[in-house]
Nucleic acid binder design. Structure first.
Lengths: 222, 222
DNA sequence: CGATGTATTGACCATTCGGTCAGGATATTG
DNA sequence: CAATATCCTGACCGAATGGTCAATACATCG
């Protein structure tokens, strides 16, 4: 609750840059550790003790930096939402459907790959009924989807793609790309791999792009 | 660990059927409650107290029936795996690709709809790194996928569908169908609905079937 | 009716939970 | 060098955790 943004800003940073650096490094360490633990065990299942151990800090220190478990969790969620909002921010009806859809699939895939823990953290939150993201889903994110859905709809009307329900299409892309981060354990287990390489991700991206674009009647741009 | 299958079997059921009925009803009540709580909070986040309250029984009674939290959880997972294994059990190269793929999408969709809690329970387990399902993924399920992948591959060779990677295709169908159970909160939030009706599910199924079949070059059966 | 087993659960246990706080460590300032 | 302010953390708190167990309730049967 008490948003302690930067209580150090009074004087310490003028000469003693070291202190600020330590602070930032510790905070970062905690955020990374917390993202992992929350992603793995969900909000209730995660313990501050486990987070502290991951970050190699005493539990009290975690609370000193982050105030509370709840605050830490919300902060992580908000960080993930920012990453998400930066996605596919500027598209218009005039753009080429194939290019836009491919860019969507590609950037979404990279988001899941670049931030797998954050992606799983988000997934766990939704799985649990989205208690913290309820309003975000019904507000910001809903607007985001609706805006893009309207563009897809116009493309359909112009005959640039099949007249499919644009919201279901967005969900299809979403789920397919999300899957490789969230269900990584399953994908690895079934394919017998140790990890997904960049080449694997590229192959999957190409596969999804090809099937989905063809599936809704969008002809490739080049 | 201690698998107490049916310690009542000695005599009680011969005349006193009532007792056996109570037992079965209580067990069922516990399983339903536990599935919900585990799905919502994950293994670590779920508490026996919460499960007991959901089932309207004292906590001790839950332990009396189920032995341990771990045992209860494993039992739920196995139940879900059985449901899954019953899916698409008998397909061959001679079948019509369109029919099989549609049946797969449809039955998978219905599985998620019929057992949303179980579906989310499974998702949470995978999300957490599949600590209990590790061997299942690398064994049984892997075989399941490989067998079906081989059939898809042969269809590709016979020109009945595009030469797409069959495993990625199975994952695509999996993720798309799973999405509507696991991310229900998101779907409802964004579409502004209170629940998904049978008609919605039918519409989504039709959408997925259409896009995916067309996307991998399978011509509809009729 | 006892006798005999099973079903049930309240009381209790050690451990862990999120969170508080006093006070020592450390750095900055005059 | 103090003086002062911030950083850090071990010790501690009440509540909740999974699990045990002895005592009770209950049903069945000779």
């Amino acid at each position: 609750m008490t948003e302690r943004s930067a209580p150090v800003d009074k004087r310490a940073k003028v000469r003693g840059e070291t202190s600020g650096v330590t602070r930032r490094r510790n905070e970062q360490e905690i955020l990374v550790a917390a993202e992992r633990v929350f992603a793995r065990h969900g909000y209730r299942g995660a313990s501050l003790q486990a987070i502290a151990e991951q970050a190699d800090l005493p539990k009290s220190n975690v609370l000193y930096y982050m105030g509370s478990k709840r605050g830490l969790y919300v902060r992580l969620l908000e960080r993930m939402m920012e990453r998400w909002n930066a996605l596919l921010d500027d598209i218009s009806v005039e753009d080429d459907p194939a290019e836009v859809l491919e860019a969507f699939i590609r950037s979404k895939m990279q988001l899941s790959r670049r931030h797998p823990e954050g992606s799983r953290l988000f997934a766990a939150e939704i799985l649990g009924g989205a208690p913290f993201l309820h309003e975000y889903l019904r507000g910001e994110l809903r607007d985001w989807v609706q805006a893009r859905a309207r563009i897809l709809e116009q493309w359909s009307e112009r005959g640039l793609m099949d007249p499919v329900d644009p919201v279901w299409l967005i969900f299809l892309i979403w789920s397919a790309t999300q899957h490789y981060a969230d269900f990584e354990a399953q994908v690895l287990g079934i394919t017998g791999r140790d990890e997904l390489t960049d080449a694997d991700v590229e192959e999957i991206t190409a596969f999804l792009t090809r099937v989905i674009l063809k599936g809704c009647g969008v002809s490739p741009s080049r």
